[in-house]
Amino acid sequence: MFEARLLKSSILKKVLEAIKDLLTQATFDCDDNGIQLQAMDNSHVALVSLLLRADGFDKYRCDRNVTMGMNLGSMTKILKCAGDKDTVTMKAQDNADTVTFVFESPNQEKVSDYEMKLMNLDLEHLGIPETEYSCTIRMPSAEFARMCRDLSQFGESIVISCTKEGVKFSTSGDIGSANIKLAQTASIDKEDEAVIIEMDEPVTLTFACQYLNYFTKATSLSPQVQLSMSADVPLVVEYRIPDIGHIRYYLAPKIEE
C-alpha cells in the first residue's frame, strides 16, 4: 500500500507545472524515504531530478517500493481539478496498475477522487556522480526567470561566465547582443533577495535558452535558485522546495564543433 497526503495540492500542481514542458511521461519511484523522479527530455539534453521527502508529507505510508509510470498530460488534467487549498492524497495498492488522487476541500464538504491508469515505462536512468562544482551562484528565482526571458529575445544560446568579479549572462543574435552582469550582494539583509557567488575556478559555458526557460517554470516553487557549474560538465539548476525536497535540472552545454 502506498499513500501520500499533502495539505496543499498547490505544491504538486507547481511541481507538475515545472516538469510538464520537458517531459511527457515519467516514473515516480516511491519508497520509505519519499518520492523520486528522474527523467530526461526526448532529446536527452536535459534531465529532471525531483525529490519529495516522506517527512514533508502530512501523511506518508509506503509498505513496499512502488514504481508508478505516469502520463504527465493526464496527471495535469487531474490536478487541474484540485482547488489550491484542497488537500491531495495519492494512493496505490501494491503492484497496482492505477493510482488514485483524492482531493478534499478545507472544510471537507467536497471530496473528489480521480483514478488514473499507470503506464509501464522503460525509461533510461543515468548515474549522476557527486560533483564538486567550480562555481555556485544563488540568486532570486524570479530574477533568473526574468534574465532568461529577456536574453532569449536576442539569441538561442546564453553564455554564462562566472569570474571573481561576478557572473555574466550574454547572448547575441540577428538584432544585436545583450549582457547582464550580476555582482554578489554587498550586504545580505534578506537571504531570499541575495545574490551569492562562490567561485573556486572561473567557468564559462554556453547553454540553449529554450531549456533554461523551461526550468524557470519551477520559479513559484522556491524564492531562490542555485546554479552549479564546472568546466565541461552539465549545468545544475536547483530549486529547493521548502520543507519537502528539491527539483534539479541538469543541462548539457553546447560544445565546440
Binding site: 539534453v45 543515468l126 548515474g127 544560446s157 560538465v233 548539457a252 552545454p253 560544445i255
Partner: peptide, 14 residues
Amino acid sequence: KGKQATLMNFFKKK
C-alpha cells in the same frame, strides 16, 4: 555557436 551535447556525453546509463 557550438553544437548541443547530450547528457550521455557526460553521464553513464544505469
